[in-house]
Design a protein around this nucleic acid. Structure first.
Lengths: 262, 262
DNA sequence: GCCAGACGACTGGTCAGACCAGTTGATCTT
DNA sequence: AAGATCAACTGGTCTGACCAGTCGTCTGGC
């Protein structure tokens, strides 16, 4: 370890300078920071290649395990991807939303005080998506939404899987039409979490009726979007979600969902 | 590498079984997954301790570097924290919003239209927090909010750091009063990301005026919360955020923020 | 001339063993 | 009993090795 200049406190000025408690910064951390800085700063655009590990060892003057731990950190942040045997070195991926939805998924999994919270959160996000989408959507968006609603209706009796896929597509298009990628990502992650949480509870008995009501709801929302009536679309979206999920939520939690209805 | 049972395809039934292309799963990945599963599943609650690395080496039957890379991944996800010399082993932290705000920060840093999107998203989340908090808050919440507003006002001319800390506290209390932990965590993460994104842009010239306006906004919101007027509190919250951040957002992106004003 | 296959020089993934600096708690000293 | 000492840990880092892939090249046969 020859290049250690972290604890350098060479402020030559005498007097009552106050020193910060120097907390040790791990070597792998500084390696990771340097590389991340290069990526985020645009120095290493997506698609670029990092030097091979053994080359990084030379450049950073650290051991290979240190370099590897740094690369692991970057990889788990989704910034790079490495493949064994690749003579070009690790590939720079740039910033992707995957990491964000991963973090969100973890949050929902651990901090879940119940389905009610999750559904309530989804009601908020979806409603806001509708509100924004109503005033920002393009004609193309409407066409795609209509097609998705048709597809939902088409597989209403017997294909719940395709139905739920079309449903997810509908919400995704709306979220993207809202013009806010962040909102779209969160909505998508929460949607996935909801689906995962309830997929076991869905007994297929009155599923057909359920699906039909869902289609009707989506049609109403679509009409509101077409009319650029954001407020109405948002309210409809909230109601639709309430209708779907309220029966699956424990009695005493249902008041939370009602609170989100406004 | 003695415990390798990933590629096991011992389905004894003959016939036209279709095999999946087996993609290699790294050892450190499986180690990390196992530990993460234990944490998220509640088996290892926050505050619990992981076995020492050398003990994990024994239990997982892998090399120490593999264990260490797995721990690095978990650490960079904010799930654990390790300290050199700690005889108790790495500490389980549980899921925190820090990782989410980190991802958000990266996303805004790389994505150019980031700040407007981020602020818009914060407007939505905060507004919904206000709406819910207005009808769910307790008397204690109001007292704490009042105290925080006072503290903000107290350090208005000369202590921007404490000011922004009190501000963060205010928003956190509101988010928690909304009764939705998911919403609170996301709002907190977005708040942190916004603060980090703009901290460099904040020239301290008209900072005092800025802070004074902020205090007034918070007082108004507090009054609306006290009156259980969720709709009004939400609108006030949106306006406050617009006022603060619109000047920092590029001209052509400002329309997005306006759209979120309703 | 061209294409298939062997070869070798890489790559990342993993392991083993070692050393260091820091923490801790028991033991010894005063 | 309070303080210094020490040994047994811990995590952080380095080194060197091996393996299984990947790929460019080289060589053989067609």
């Amino acid at each position: 370890m020859s290049a250690d200049s972290a604890g350098d406190v060479t402020g030559g000025t005498a007097g009552h300078v106050s020193f910060q408690p120097v907390r040790p910064v791990r070597a792998y951390q500084r390696v990771a920071e340097q590389i991340e800085e290069r990526i985020l700063g645009g120095d290493l655009p997506p698609g670029a290649r990092l030097p091979a590990e053994r080359e990084l060892v030379r450049q950073f003057a650290v051991g290979r395990s240190t370099v590897r731990e740094a690369l692991r950190v970057l990889q788990s942040s989704g910034l790079i991807r490495s493949r064994p045997g690749d003579p070009l070195g690790a590939e720079v991926l740039g910033v992707s939303p995957d990491n964000l939805s991963e973090a969100l998924t973890r949050l929902t999994r651990s901090h879940l005080s119940g389905l009610a919270e999750l559904v309530q959160f989804r009601m908020l996000l979806d409603a806001e998506s509708y509100r924004l989408a109503a005033r920002l959507h393009t004609g193309d968006d409407l066409i795609r939404l209509e097609a998705l609603a048709d597809r939902m209706e088409a597989c209403v009796p017997a294909d719940p899987h395709a139905f739920s896929e079309a449903d997810a597509g509908f919400h995704r298009v709306v979220a993207e039409a809202s013009g806010n990628a962040l909102l779209a990502l969160c909505a998508r992650a929460v949607h996935a979490a909801v689906v995962e949480a309830i997929e076991s509870k869905l007994v297929g008995d009155d599923a057909a009726d359920w699906m039909r009501r869902s289609v009707a709801h989506h049609r109403h929302i679509l009409a509101a979007l077409r009319g650029a009536d954001g407020r109405s679309a948002a309210a409809l979206g909230r109601e639709a979600l309430y209708d779907y999920y309220a029966p699956l939520v424990p009695e005493q939690d249902r008041i939370r969902l009602k609170a989100a209805l406004d």
